[in-house]
Design a protein around this nucleic acid. Structure first.
Lengths: 341, 341
DNA sequence: CACGACAAGTAAACCGTTTAACCAACATAA
DNA sequence: TTATGTTGGTTAAACGGTTTACTTGTCGTG
């Protein structure tokens, strides 16, 4: 069965294809009320559905937004099991769909470029989650579409960044623990890489310590993958070998859960024996028991902000912006941190 | 800067565009080793990246697979916060990407059709998660691409279904509780709709009860949204008004978590005061404390199977199959069910 | 009244690939 | 020898839109 095309519509309405195209694209002032009605009627009656491939070929606009999601190193699966990313996508997709855009998700192989995909598909914009090698960003700069970075602190004018103040977050979290009387505070964190989220949180931790005149002990920093599994490992080790700690700050909620379970395996109860503080306030943190005290950020709002930015730029309502949008954070007190005498 | 096209490649290699196209599409036996090498060289040197829009327009193939994710009814956000769906997507995306396909995710508005999107984007195939109105499937049948249903029990030859035996799962779960000595077993479940996953699990529950000569009491069936929130609500109510229950079977893990927390709010501890059984074994069930006893299914394998099927059909390695693939399930004993005397 | 400005619409080129149809040259079989 | 494939290639017409440049007709204005 042949596809209904713009030609059929034009014919039925007794106008040129150009006129139909104008209507489809909402060009103001190119068609009279009268022909507009005729065309709408024809579209309706023929049940016309435009072909985005053709549109994209002709116009270089695809109504397609790419979302890059970090993936595990070993198998190449998306890190979607971390609710932080699924929460983000929820916000992004909902907003984009309402504005006529569709979302193409994908991971990026280590060392691979995302440029290929943006060009192959004529992407209109992209949201990049996760942190990549420098070459990744260099490549990406070559393409001329609005791009939002979610996680990266890379200092490059080609990209919009939507962030929180991670250093402040790390600082507030640690300070909160200190205010509750803790002085031996361990840090469980991802790999501390320059210009990474994790590094900033780590710096915040150090700052709070030094401000309180507490000794920074590198042996209390447990550095590994940002994952539940590594948190578990660290928690077990802490329970076994670092019994003098009274609190642990984990730089992501998923790690904090790991830590809590690891501590429990090692015989320590949270918060009775030891306090744990998380970071992110993913949607599960209200569910998981004991309920996690953590640094709150509104993850869905962050997705929303990313989507809005892209939409506004693409609609011409906003100029390309290479700046940083900082979203607020706050300490969310729940049940895993206890004051000590 | 103008885009590098197949014409540039053809020119540089001194052949026709057709030859280049054949190479790009791996057509065997249309080009000699010699020209193949020339063309590859030209592609390499020019750093040529094909335009999928043009390809899709000309060939009706897009290398794009649509994945429909259920969304919440109130706001239109994807139900991605339910790890069941993110786990599925992990499996699907990884497999598809390795075979050169890309994944377009989207929700579908209530009452809307997915036909539009499949036609607009020339989708090569689709995976449908969630359950929709009949008209949704009717519409979808019109389009001539392989489609996999993940959740639906709809009996229609146009679709491939990849499932577990949900009734068996419900049966096994309930039987397990009965074997542990429970006789007053509540059911917390989603809306029981004909041909839905939830209904099958519910039927399994009833079957196990009647098989054990236990009385089925409709008052012990709590029917609401498949969500943590409703589980919470049900849990609270059970703790308040149904103290004689010794066990609850929740038809999804997320609901089970809600139930557990609701019970706790009502002063009941799991599993000491009451046992809880889940269904799905989402990746969090190993993390959440207490660890959930549940009906295990390999969710990622299910995603993988869906992706594989599409790939095989599209590669011509397999015929369209309107049958059902059943994946195995088993009872995963963890810490939320306790034997009673 | 002549002029330009504007509104409404059209014709046709173009976007980058695929692919059906065709062709030449050479090998093979009858 | 002639018909018959096969191999390796080309040409050019789609595919379904968008958009530039152009044509009309109408109106306001000096």
């Amino acid at each position: 069965m042949k596809r209904t095309t713009i030609k059929d519509v034009a014919e039925k309405a007794g106008v040129s294809t150009a006129a139909v195209s104008y209507v489809l694209n909402g060009r103001e002032g190119k068609v009279s009320e009268e022909t507009l009605a005729k065309i709408h009627k024809a579209i309706e009656e023929l049940n016309y559905i435009p072909d985005f491939s053709a549109r994209s070929l002709a116009s270089k606009r695809s109504s397609l937004i790419g979302v890059v999601i970090p993936q595990t190193e070993n198998d190449k699966r998306l890190l979607l099991e971390n609710p932080f990313y699924s929460d983000l996508i929820c916000g992004i997709e909902a907003e984009l769909r309402q504005h006529g855009y569709h979302v193409l998700i994908s991971g990026v192989e280590k060392g691979q470029s995302y440029l290929d995909l943006t060009m192959q598909r004529n992407l209109d914009g992209a949201v990049i989650m996760g942190i990549y090698q420098e070459s990744f960003y260099e490549e990406l700069k070559k393409v001329d579409i609005p791009i939002v970075l979610i996680d990266s602190y890379i200092n490059d004018d080609s990209f919009k960044k939507i962030r929180i103040d991670d250093e402040l977050g790390g600082y507030l979290a640690t300070k909160h623990l200190i205010e509750q009387g803790h002085t031996n505070i361990g840090l469980v964190t991802g790999m501390i890489r320059k210009d990474g989220v994790v590094e900033k949180r780590y710096l915040g931790y150090k700052k709070a310590l030094s401000e309180a005149n507490l000794f920074y002990d590198h042996d209390l920093v447990f550095e590994g993958q940002v994952s539940y599994e590594y948190g578990l490992e660290a928690g077990i080790e802490i329970a076994e070998r670092h019994k003098h700690l009274t609190a642990v700050f984990a730089t992501s909620d998923m790690m904090a859960y790991g830590v809590i379970n690891g501590l429990r395996q090692g015989g320590l109860q949270v918060p009775d024996d030891i306090s744990v503080m998380g970071f992110d306030d993913i949607s599960l943190s209200d569910i998981f028991y004991p309920k996690l005290t953590t640094v709150h950020q509104d993850i869905k709002a962050r997705g929303l902000a990313a989507a809005r930015y892209l939409i506004d730029v693409l609609d011409g309502k906003q100029n390309l912006d290479s700046g940083v949008t900082l979203l607020p954070i706050s300490i969310k007190e729940r049940d895993t941190v206890r004051r000590i005498k």
